[in-house]
Simulated scan of single mutants.
Amino acid sequence: MALLIITLWMVSIILLMRSGFSFLNPLLYVLILVQTHLYTGLFITAHDAMHGTIAPKNENLNFALGQVCTALYALFPLKNLHTKHHQHHNFVHTKNDPDYYEGNFFVWYFNFIKQYITWWQIVAMAIIYNVLKIWVPEKNLILFWVLPSLLSTLQLFYFGTYLPHKGEHQNKYQSKTQNKNHVWAFLSCYFFGYHYEHHHSPGTPWWQLWEIKEKNMTTNNG
């Protein structure tokens, strides 16, 4: 599954870098959304690596694939993300939780991003952008490389952090789950709207979270 996401992202980005589209063409906006979703897939795959679920029997391969995903996403060092993400799981909804902040959506989002983005990443991405401009039309870089990655951070934050963790919750994971709709759960954030299920079973890869949702619903209904 990790190789599929990486391959789809790479094929898509290569094709789109040389494509020509009019702003009047509705397909342009569909492709931006598709590319955004693939960017989100890269990060979700890296997230699976943080839980050791890409290659459970091969730690080196698991780390390597996770690092490839975070590098393609925005040059994130996987070790730093791993440390902060496990702080989130261990100290969820407390002052020691790097993903939680008591504030409105925009303030929370700013603090969320601030936890993970470093100045060296911004400088490095700017250098890569200016090098790529030599061969790739700048419009394509903005529409299919810069914009989708930024939209992806909003997608990840809104569906994977803000909605599940805002407010108070009567469970030890301090999180809620979205209503059952597997199609929307995949399209919105690779099943991470089923967020209680992720905290309940962090060793379950993203593409199996719907099964945990089904099991929990069966248990609760029973």
Rank of each mutant, 00 (worst) to 15 (best):
W119F: 14
W119Y: 11
W120N: 14
Q121E: 10
Q121I: 03
Q121H: 03
I122G: 11
I122K: 07
I122M: 12
V123R: 05
V123K: 06
V123M: 09
A124E: 08
M125E: 14
M125C: 02
M125V: 15
A126E: 06
A126Y: 11
A126N: 12
A126Q: 07
I127C: 10
I128F: 15
I128N: 12
N130W: 08
N130E: 13
N130R: 08
N130Q: 13
V131Y: 13
V131W: 11
V131A: 12
V131R: 04
V131F: 13
V131T: 11
L132Q: 12
K133T: 04
K133P: 00
K133I: 02
K133G: 10
I134D: 01
W135Y: 14
W135M: 08
V136I: 15
V136P: 12
P137N: 04
E138A: 09
E138H: 07
E138V: 15
K139M: 14
N140F: 02
L141V: 08
L141H: 02
I142C: 02
I142F: 15
L143K: 00
L143M: 05
L143S: 00
L143Q: 00
F144Y: 01
W145K: 02
W145R: 04
W145P: 00
L147G: 06
P148S: 06
P148K: 04
P148E: 07
P148W: 09
L150D: 01
L150R: 12
L150N: 10
L150F: 15
L151M: 06
L151F: 11
L151I: 11
L151P: 05
L154M: 13
L154E: 04
Q155E: 05
L156V: 09
F157S: 01
F157V: 04
F157P: 04
Y158G: 01
Y158R: 03
F159D: 01
G160F: 05
G160I: 06
G160H: 08
T161M: 11
T161S: 08
T161D: 15
